[in-house]
Design a binder for these strands. Structure first.
Lengths: 154, 154
DNA sequence: CGAAATTATTTCAAGCTTAAAGTTTTATAA
DNA sequence: TTATAAAACTTTAAGCTTGAAATAATTTCG
């Protein structure tokens, strides 16, 4: 996935783009993961879950988290389990529908996340330092159109 | 990591870009992974390793693979183990330096990869279908400059 | 109502991933 | 030489990830 095209011909430009995209995101992701570990003794998946919850003070269902983070249900279960056991998150059974549970950041989780998020934003700014703000906006615009074409087919 | 910025202010454009980039690559990666599984009963990491080896008929060292694919040494060990057990790859001890081993695709591995790679290229073309070839080239160019700024610091 | 389908979630097995520690081999240099 | 360091790789423990199967609660509809 991270290697170059194996032949030449038409349609290769999209393949090259995909490989660049993947290499860029993997490189940055690896660096962020390492810093999260070293500086805050946490992981990217935990950060992702906490970031989602931080934006939803009212809480999120497990399936909301799963959908939003683009990962499987079972995956979220494990990550939330660990966050709960660390006191950063709560899982509250709902009266209305007892299949679901509302997941929320605790006070401690919220404080903890705010500190990590500030550092995280700085790191991203640093790692993408040679992309101008103007260029960043243009790239962002281009990337927005990626999904619309095919997702949600079936 | 996949959530939006948690506040507004200067420097947010790079954070937005990073989030878009990550969402785009995760979405596409998930779709490719699913198709590799369904159509060829294989995985993305296996595909990555085979793609790297396909481009190096003379073979690669474990550490070459690790560096090229941006993953840890131990990770490559496991994936190559499984590919060897499936007869797709060989690991040959070298006379010159007996710490190292040269990893190569077998005949079967090479044939198998060629078929998967053809399908893979088609999928990428499809998934990035609403990015024009021209736009793909421009985006690729922009992404090239990502790493140079900070990586290789040591 | 009550069976059947749907929805939300958890559990499970297998594989991926990392960082750190361990093994073996090669290189360095006192 | 021969200790010591360095390099290449494997192993390990912990956590992440998926898809599929299992549970439990709710909804649908005959």
């Amino acid at each position: 996935m991270v290697a170059g095209p194996t032949s030449v011909g038409p349609g290769k430009d999209r393949l090259r783009l995909w490989i660049r995209l993947l290499r860029a995101s993997r490189t940055i992701e690896a660096e962020l993961r390492e810093r999260l570990k070293k500086e805050f003794d946490t992981t990217l998946p935990r950060f992702d879950v906490m970031a989602a919850l931080y934006r939803s003070p009212e809480g999120m269902l497990m399936s909301d988290l799963s959908r939003f983070l683009l990962v499987s249900n079972g995956n979220v279960t494990g990550i939330v389990d660990r966050l709960v056991s660390e006191g950063l998150v709560t899982r509250a059974r709902r009266n209305g529908d007892r299949r679901t549970s509302m997941v929320r950041l605790t006070e401690e989780g919220s404080k903890s996340f705010a500190a990590i998020a500030a550092a995280h934003e700085g790191w991203v700014g640093e790692l993408l330092g040679n992309v101008s703000e103007e260029e960043a906006r243009r790239l962002t615009g281009m990337l927005k159109s990626f999904r619309s074409n095919w997702e949600g087919r079936e």
